[in-house]
Design a protein around this nucleic acid. Structure first.
Lengths: 209, 209
DNA sequence: ATACAAAGCGGACCGCAGTCCGTTTAGCTA
DNA sequence: TAGCTAAACGGACTGCGGTCCGCTTTGTAT
């Protein structure tokens, strides 16, 4: 599928000074293939870096050279889904994309994110376990800018930057997963809750069912 | 100081079947002493369990027998501060304690929590790094019940449980610390932001400065 | 073809959290 | 005081993420 990589998700840009050595390319494919298999077989949390190196028939150093750390690996596995998500809320059809009033876009954003977490939550959580720079990751910055913009459009003029930070905290994969998996809350209820939350925040009268 | 342990914070209750063996008591004191010293000297994140065992002149097994894991150790170090915090929002003077209108109590709760994180954030974060049961920890459950109650009193009748979850996510030590330490946001601004956020959520007209 | 630099590679190695299990000891009982 | 048992102890061990560094491969310049 086609997408514009607004913010580079993969660490290695395709327009670097050196393209990429052939053996490196081969190993990257091997690693991604093996990683997807292992995740499918054992689940995200059970996949270890040694396991991956072994399955891909590659040295452990190579794995870390490629992805930096475990979180980087998971981020790479998510990059397609993440790019599509970005695509949708920036260029896609309303209410998620431009065209709808900001309150509805905000509600749609949360709903989309919650469904995303329901689908990819374990990967998303694992991709954030980078030590001390979770919130500075490119996708997080983009979401933040987006929410902040919506808040401004909706007339939030008091520290919309912080308001956006608070709102995004609400959609943390860790917490949403806890509600979904451990508490057994249904997706629909969390979505409705988010709509209620966002609606209240922007002073919309609770949309009567 | 005096406090009521509403929800047991320390794993070992003082009223168990067997009181506590003398060597165990001695080692517990040694460990807590050593832990406080090490945290003061090197900071929370640099303290390792081996280090602690060594400083306390105790076997590593003893450390884990006592605290379960690293998060348990940090929780124990926090227990006094946490108990005092609980005390204040449940029995203390308004606006944090009972007596003030729910909106003001909610605002005060957030402010108090933010100051708490500014003071003990590193410990709080480390105490939550327990694998997969962060949100089920007794203090977190208590905060949740409290916020939910305040929301109900303030007239939030649509899924106050979920609303409380969302609100608490906002006060996550990890995120607040990121704003405070990495982004250099001043405590006062975050407090003001929280008031704004809580106020909007409960439909209060933004309290004119 | 050959030489050569740099990118890539691999696996031994490290530090840390957490476990296991044989040994020690406190405290009770006779 | 001697004996007994359960609790406590301690440190070797495991598994994992991540690093290091000497070796190999690739692509290029001659």
């Amino acid at each position: 599928m086609f997408f514009v990589s607004l913010i580079p998700i993969r660490p290695e840009g395709s327009s670097g000074p050196q393209p990429e050595r052939s053996d490196a390319a081969r190993n990257r494919e091997r690693l991604l293939q093996a990683a997807r298999e292992l995740v499918a077989e054992h689940g995200v949390d059970a996949v270890t870096m040694d396991m991956l190196a072994c399955r891909a028939e590659v040295g452990k150093g190579t794995v870390f050279r490629r992805f930096g750390n475990r979180a980087g690996l998971m981020m790479t596995l998510l990059s397609d889904a993440e790019a599509e998500f970005q695509q949708r809320f920036i260029f896609g059809p309303p209410p998620l994309g431009p065209g709808a009033p900001p309150v509805e876009r905000l509600m749609a954003f949360g709903e989309a994110r919650i469904r995303y977490i329901d689908k990819y939550g374990e990967l998303a959580r694992a991709s954030e376990h980078s030590p001390h720079n979770r919130h500075a990751a490119p996708p997080a910055l983009l979401w933040h800018r987006h929410i902040e913009m919506l808040l401004r459009e909706a007339g939030v003029d008091r520290d919309p930057w912080l308001m956006a930070s608070f709102l995004i905290a609400t959609l943390d994969p860790e917490r949403v997963l806890y509600a979904l998996r451990s508490q057994g809350i249904e997706v629909a209820r969390i979505e409705a809750g988010w709509r209620e939350f966002a609606g209240r925040l922007l002073g919309c009268p609770p949309d009567a069912k």
